[in-house]
Design a protein around this nucleic acid. Structure first.
Lengths: 346, 346
DNA sequence: AATTAGCAGTCTCACCGTTAGAGTGCTAAC
DNA sequence: GTTAGCACTCTAACGGTGAGACTGCTAATT
């Protein structure tokens, strides 16, 4: 275990480095953090902290910079739930004051505000959950050649998409709606995909085969999608003076690959609410970067993950506070409208 | 006017520089482009081309690199309609083989394929045209508290959005639809915005005031939006080895500002189909970058602009070919479905 | 045993000078 | 008008040097 003085010094190095992005010397720490001990003593401590793997010296006569171990220790031990400032809370609340109904809108807003308030790139990954229950399917004929299919579930509209049909007359659509709801309503999307349409209805189905296939395809596409990924503020990473062109390249080539972004943000390994990945090995190859992500849920049902990607020297406390406040806000918006639903399945 | 030999030399410098991104020497040009004249002669020509402002020497003893004037001359004189390769055509055709109905989907696909095939960042700006005529408005009640409003115009669905209503019973919606269509159908969005709802209907309107306002707001929001801007392949810019961190910063800070991107891509000043902006002064501040953009229209009606942003040393011919092929493809997809519409208003 | 002042040692950074090489501009000859 | 040849210029790379920033060590101090 680290002596409390070592901890204080380690914390000082990380705090200063996060602020300055330059190696920190013993003298600097002495003048800003300690009145009672000398720079020499701090030097001795720094030296052992380096031996323990927490600090790194770019070269013999420079100050120390934190290793990922140091950041790790920092977030594990010093991460305080620093309350957000009034302007930050105001900014977040303001973004959410509109009424939303489509999940995508809320998520987009959340991604934007997270990025704006933290000044880092934000990512939200929305799970397409098998377990979502279809409440009702509406079909609106458009022009005799195509129709808009609206799929309403217990968590709102999950999809509305145009399919092509040969709708001869008005009643065709009305009948189709009845049939489609008879088949799909009340079941979960997962169920439908695995079991297919109910075979006992074959006779009825034949008449509406084309339309039914269209709806089926929408549902299957929904499940098969990796989930929607929303990224905001990609350019934020470039605003930090110590971002090199290589870092930028690594960062953007990862960001452009939706699959790896999703993997990075969706950390289901642990049960804890927040996941912090620091450094090359933990972030899937972006050196000097870190990822903070949180599980988001509504009424206890997990709906996705939200996260922030930024430089290793990141304001972790702020990011965690923002992620958690935005998560609470979303929850309170959506929970109210879904309260009358089924019981929690925790 | 430039002698044909000067033109050949200028073209050689630009071609080589686009390939190599390094200053081009007289010897290089001699060996790759000329058998009949000596390097010394080429040197003399290079020197006068520099005096004329077409070439720049990074330092006295280096080769020449093109100035924007050179690129400008190059695109004005040497830009040939190089036909696309089979794989490129195949890639584009493949992306468009699905059936689309929402304009956004097509545009997203187009942006993606343009970026993929050219390897530059692509931008599409879609105009929200006042002149679009509302064919029909459909309203689908969802849960007694909210309803989905679908606005269908002569160019397809332009918007579907959830609004909140207090729909007491089924017939309320049915009546509302009748009223809404009575008021809005057949008029253009621009008209509606400027004139508001028809005041003679005031009595009828009162009952549906809330709902009507909701629809009105959707239409107004549509007009007031600067038009949707879709950007794809932002990271492509970083893939070029001569992209510096400053270039990247300039580039991304511009890209993040939707308004200036739109201004850059939407060049209505000239009547010509393609617009090429090269260098800092023409591109709104991104040094060493160029923008190629094209007007896109359907059935002769202009619907927006598509463009590519990349390094000044860009494969202009390829970009122009791709933009024009994609434009034709979109046109042929959408024109067919809208053929039965009103006559062209050119 | 921990702390500290003092000092030597080490490394970077910014200069400078040098050299090799690349490429030009000029000149005189064709 | 063209060209060969050469002097000239500039860069990039390398090594050396001195100032400055910190450290690590040691010996004295508490």
């Amino acid at each position: 275990m680290l002596s409390s003085r070592k901890q204080k010094i380690l914390r000082a190095v990380v705090d200063e480095y996060i602020k300055e992005a330059t190696p920190i010397s013993s003298g600097e720490i002495k003048s800003k953090y300690f009145d009672d001990i000398s720079a020499a003593t701090i030097r001795a401590e720094l030296s052992t902290l380096e031996d323990m793997g927490f600090l790194v010296q770019p070269h013999t006569s420079s100050g120390r910079i934190p290793s990922h171990l140091a950041y790790r220790f920092y977030v594990d031990n010093f991460l305080l739930d620093r309350p957000l400032g009034v302007e930050e809370i105001a900014a977040i609340d303001k973004s959410f004051k509109n009424k939303f109904t489509k999940v995508e809108e809320i998520v987009k807003t959340a991604a934007k505000v997270i990025s704006d308030v933290t000044n880092y790139t934000s990512v939200i990954v929305l799970k397409n959950i098998n377990k979502v229950v279809i409440k009702e399917i509406k079909i609106v004929g458009l022009d005799g050649e195509s129709a808009l299919v609206i799929i309403i579930t217990d968590s709102g509209i999950i999809r509305d998409k145009v399919i092509s049909v040969n709708a001869s007359d008005e009643s065709f659509i009305t009948d189709a709606v009845k049939l489609v709801n008879k088949i799909f309503a009340g079941r979960t999307v997962g169920e439908i995909k695995s079991s297919g349409a109910d075979s006992r209805l074959d006779a009825e189905i034949n008449a509406f085969k084309e339309l039914l296939n269209g709806v089926m395809n929408i549902l299957i596409a929904y499940i098969d999608e990796p989930g929607s990924i929303i990224t905001e503020g990609q350019s934020k990473m470039l605003e930090y003076p110590d971002t090199s062109i290589e870092m930028a390249r690594n960062f953007f080539s990862l960001i452009d690959n939706k699959k790896s972004v999703a993997e990075l943000i969706c950390d289901d390994a642990t049960d804890i609410e927040f996941s912090l990945k620091i450094g090359k090995s933990e972030t899937g190859g972006i050196d000097k970067c870190a990822v903070v992500s949180a599980k988001y849920s509504i009424n206890g049902k997990q709906i996705g993950h939200a996260g922030v990607i930024g430089p290793e020297r990141m304001d972790y406390s702020k990011v965690v506070s923002v992620l958690s406040y935005v998560g609470d806000t979303i929850n309170s918006i959506l929970a109210s409208s879904a309260q009358d639903d089924t019981e929690d399945d925790r």
